[in-house]
Design a protein around this nucleic acid. Structure first.
Lengths: 191, 191
DNA sequence: AAGAAACCTGAACGATGATTCAAAAATAAG
DNA sequence: CTTATTTTTGAATCATCGTTCAGGTTTCTT
């Protein structure tokens, strides 16, 4: 068991260091040496664990996607009505665990770089499709069919835009405030 | 006069090539050689005109910002009411000249990289501030004061999100459709 | 036409950074 | 305490790319 443990601990540490380092320096500019320094390790050890820089980035993105999935499932469980489930989707995106400047920042970095990396693109596409079908399914229970697609697009664009703005923010962001604003947007969209 | 002309022509050509090349390969990955090839020139000549890669990128961003400014001024002139001027702001963002996949794509690239380049960051900040105050000013004429800021944020996030989505699109995007959707969003936000 | 100015490029330079590797250090097993 | 296994890293390798520069070509001026 101890065997498995150390590997997991290192993985976790290196991924956290990656988030911080990428936020500080930018996805494309950050070097293995910088990430290693952030984690108190050496560049060579990162390759030992992740095989390559791209492997590290993919693992980091998986880490964030897992967080999002968990937040989503959690909120979905409690929700009863379609509208509450819509709220839950928004709340997952703006949950305390996810909606921080470094994470929004790195998310944007992945966004911008996904089209040029097949491995990132694949993860990105899967996530996007999943969120889309969730939102669409709930909207279909509330709005007439011809309004669903417009509303879905508006809500998803709004979510993306909020993340983008958060990524640029120079001070800390407030997740609770973001959730309240998102609820208002949902309400408007459904009116 | 002929002196000035050639320089302008080359600048234009190189910037267009930059947009295409960055869209194809990504801001951080694209090389001077690739951009040069796209323009049918040599990497050295780009340095002759723009001094450095960063200079080229800055010029390209200025080019896009100028386009946006022009589209905005144009629409503003015709608009009479505050609501029409709001439409005009949205329409500028989704004008035929700007709302294409390569341009949204490169815009997103600049977005993601601006925080790490003082020269890009400066341009980016100026533009963002300008759009924000325009939207805020128009909303202040329509909505009660306490709703202005929420509405402004919602509209701006929406615009950003639409660009982001367009940047990821694999097929061509339709500017007219985007404008119509944007008008609907404005209407909902004001309701 | 001849000289000057602008324009262009191939080749060389210099710096950087991901990855590999051999060997050391730490840890576990017997 | 040995031996085996896992973990770690400094140094070497290898490749890439932005930039410079010297010299050539074209365009303009007179």
């Amino acid at each position: 068991m101890g065997r498995k443990r150390i590997r997991d601990i290192r993985n976790e540490e290196l991924i956290e260091a990656t988030i911080v380092a990428v936020h500080k320096r930018g996805y494309s500019v950050v070097t293995m040496a910088e990430i290693a320094q952030e984690a108190g390790a050496s560049a060579a050890s990162i390759n030992y664990y992740f095989g390559s820089k791209e492997g590290l980035m993919e693992a980091t993105m998986r880490h964030l996607l897992r967080k999002l999935r968990i937040a989503m499932i959690e909120g979905y469980g409690a929700a009863q009505t379609p509208k509450e489930r819509l709220y839950a989707v928004m709340d997952a995106n703006f949950s305390d665990a996810l909606f921080t400047v470094p994470q929004c920042s790195i998310w944007m970095q992945f966004w911008a770089n996904a089209p040029y990396s097949p491995r990132l693109a694949r993860l990105h596409r899967i996530n996007r499709t999943r969120v889309r079908s969730h939102v669409r399914a709930e909207l279909a229970n509330i709005l007439p069919a011809e309004r669903v697609e417009t509303a879905r697009s508006a809500l998803q664009c709004y979510m993306d835009g909020v993340w983008l703005e958060a990524a640029q923010s120079e001070s800390a962001v407030n997740a609770e405030t973001a959730r309240q604003a998102a609820h208002q947007v949902v309400d408007l969209t459904l009116s």
